[in-house]
């Protein structure tokens, strides 16, 4: 390790020591530790807004309204095999290149693109792909938010580099609130563990840095299209 590392260790002790002195607290105090462990294990949910606490169909409707409010577009199809047709229609309608980059997600792997004339390639993006297609593991009705997780199935670069991002989500995966999604993440990855990246995406990229004028398409996708399945 580099020389700075020695300083790092001592800075850690200095900071923790200062905190304990300021709080007149003891780092080994069993009672304090128990309180902290209880919160980390118990993960209390806090106050959950009523807004998203709806039966599934209404939840999907709220999700759609909220996503459209932040300039995403939303389409709905009955079954997974309709995805290629829905994607092709969207690309045609907006005059976008018939070229698609997809990860290895099993949900999207067996789709038949042959009839669509879309050139499909697989893997992460290096910035050269006009359109990315991903599968969101969850949605949040409360704010029209998509939840995407990193990995070979859905490379994180697809969420940010292509100018157009199309995201497939199953209607049944749309939750009312963030806290419900965290419960699912804990179940999938184990308590205390996370995939490298969890992206919550609410609408396409934007900036208001020039005279507070809202402009779409800052560094991320200019367009976000959501396909709800089921």
């Amino acid at each position: 390790m580099v020389g700075a590392e020695e300083g790092v260790v001592s800075d850690r002790e200095v900071i923790l020591g200062k905190i304990r002195r300021a709080l007149a607290a003891d780092g080994n105090d069993v009672g304090r530790r128990a309180i902290v462990i209880a919160r980390l294990e118990g993960t209390p949910r806090g106050i959950i807004p009523e807004r998203g606490q709806l039966p599934q169909e209404e939840r999907v409707a709220l999700f759609t309204t909220m996503a459209e409010k932040v300039s995403a577009t939303v389409g709905r199809i009955a079954a997974l095999e309709d995805v290629p047709r829905a994607v092709a229609e969207f690309l045609r309608k907006h005059n976008l290149p018939a070229s698609l980059r997809i990860g290895a997600d099993p949900l999207l792997a067996d789709l038949a693109w042959d009839g669509t004339q879309i050139a499909v390639s697989h893997g992460p993006s290096d910035g050269g792909d006009p359109v990315g297609l991903s599968h969101a593991v969850a949605g949040i009705a409360e704010s029209g938010t998509l939840v995407l997780t990193s990995g070979p199935d859905n490379p994180t670069t697809l969420n940010f580099l292509p100018e157009t991002h199309i995201v497939v989500i199953r209607a049944a995966d749309i939750a009312g609130d963030y806290e419900t999604v965290w419960d699912e993440v804990r179940e999938t990855y184990g308590k205390g563990h996370m995939p490298r990246t969890v992206n919550m995406v609410t609408g396409p990229s934007r900036s208001a840095d020039i005279e507070q004028t809202l402009l779409l398409g800052a560094h991320g996708p200019r367009r976000l299209h959501i396909v709800v399945v089921g």
Partner: peptide, 24 residues
């Protein structure tokens, strides 16, 4: 901050890329 319900990107990062990750 801006009167949005939610900012566009809220990103949770945990450690470096995993062995199977294609990016990061």
């Amino acid at each position: 901050a801006t009167g949005q319900d939610m900012s566009v990107y809220t990103t949770f990062s945990t450690g470096p890329r995993r062995p199977e990750d294609p990016d990061g």
